[in-house]
Amino acid sequence: MTPPVGCDEAVRRLWEFLDGGLDERDHRRVEEHLAWCLRCCGEVAFARELRGLLRTRTGITLPDEARNRMERFIDELGEETEERSCP
């Protein structure tokens, strides 16, 4: 018989739960908690939204000028040259 998970522990382990990072026993304990705790279900939905925000709202476009400079660099990549130093 495994002890039930309280809200504190469920919240603390939420992202790990979503990441599939918990072992089977702990995953099941959090899942059981979420089956009846509405408040923690809200936390789960929010954690999912937050992960989505990180994925979709950190877009960065490569500016044309930078692309051109780096493509010129790539065109010469592998030619016999002296090693360039770090800035």
Binding site: G78, E79, T81, E82, E83
Partner: peptide, 20 residues
Amino acid sequence: GSMVGALRPSERAALRQLAR
């Protein structure tokens, strides 16, 4: 001196394509 000159032409082409 770097080892960059040691790449074969096919390797160089593959690396450049990957980098692009």
